[in-house]
Simulated assay, not measured.
Amino acid sequence: MTTHETAHAPVIAQITRAQDATAAVRRDLTDCWAAVVNAGGAVIPMDCPLPPVTPSMVEPAVERIARGLSPQRSRLLLATVDGALAGWLLLRREPHPLVAHCGVVNHVQTHVRFRGLGIGAALMRGVTGIAREEMGLERLQLTARAGLGLEDFYRRAGWSEVGRWPGALRVAPGDDRDEILMSLAL
């Protein structure tokens, strides 16, 4: 695990290998993910039901992410405050040679106990430097759920909206949301 820290900001660390995603780290990720989903967050794992969820329901997704970690292909970025997990995200390199210069940011989360403290902004600053300087990526992409103000958050971090899939996400019967496609040149 390597650490990047700036004054007056949370500590941003990255995990690049499966064996470094300890049981304690995995448990913290699982607990954070369940809390974020249950608070209305837009990061529901693919194989999970709609909220409410329990940590055990999220655990298989965390295990898959941890098993897939690799310095050149997939990294976890963790934000901690006083040693507690405050947020995290996943950075992945696209595997196909045509898009190997691009990365994908997934599962951007701030634990509900740490919202409003700049955790998400710190993670977004950290991911751009790591993507460019350590992984040699030239562009990042992510998707966000409309209706939560996420596109404004990402715009403030320098991202641009490049498209939408209208009504692609069904949050509940009668509540379809656009999936917003966003991009950042590094």
Rank of each mutant, 00 (worst) to 15 (best):
P51F: 15
V104I: 09
G83H: 14
V162G: 00
V112L: 07
G136K: 13
E59L: 12
A122T: 01
V127P: 01
R177N: 03
M57H: 06
M182P: 00
T2W: 05
H107Y: 11
G163D: 09
P97D: 12
W159L: 01
P95C: 06
M46H: 06
G103K: 14
L148I: 13
W159R: 02
R75V: 10
R93Q: 08
T110E: 13
G103V: 10
P45W: 15
R145S: 03
G129Y: 10
H8Q: 11
E94D: 00
D20N: 11
F114Y: 15
R125T: 03
A35D: 04
R27M: 01
V127C: 02
I130C: 05
G147C: 10
S183Q: 12
C48V: 05
V11A: 07
V127A: 05
F153G: 00
A23F: 07
D47Q: 10
P97M: 15
G118D: 11
E5N: 03
T143K: 07
V25D: 01
L29T: 04
L76H: 02
G126K: 12
R125V: 07
M182S: 00
A100V: 09
L150Y: 09
M135R: 08
R177D: 03
G126C: 11
R64L: 13
A42F: 05
R75K: 13
G87H: 10
L89M: 09
G136F: 15
V171Y: 11
C32L: 15
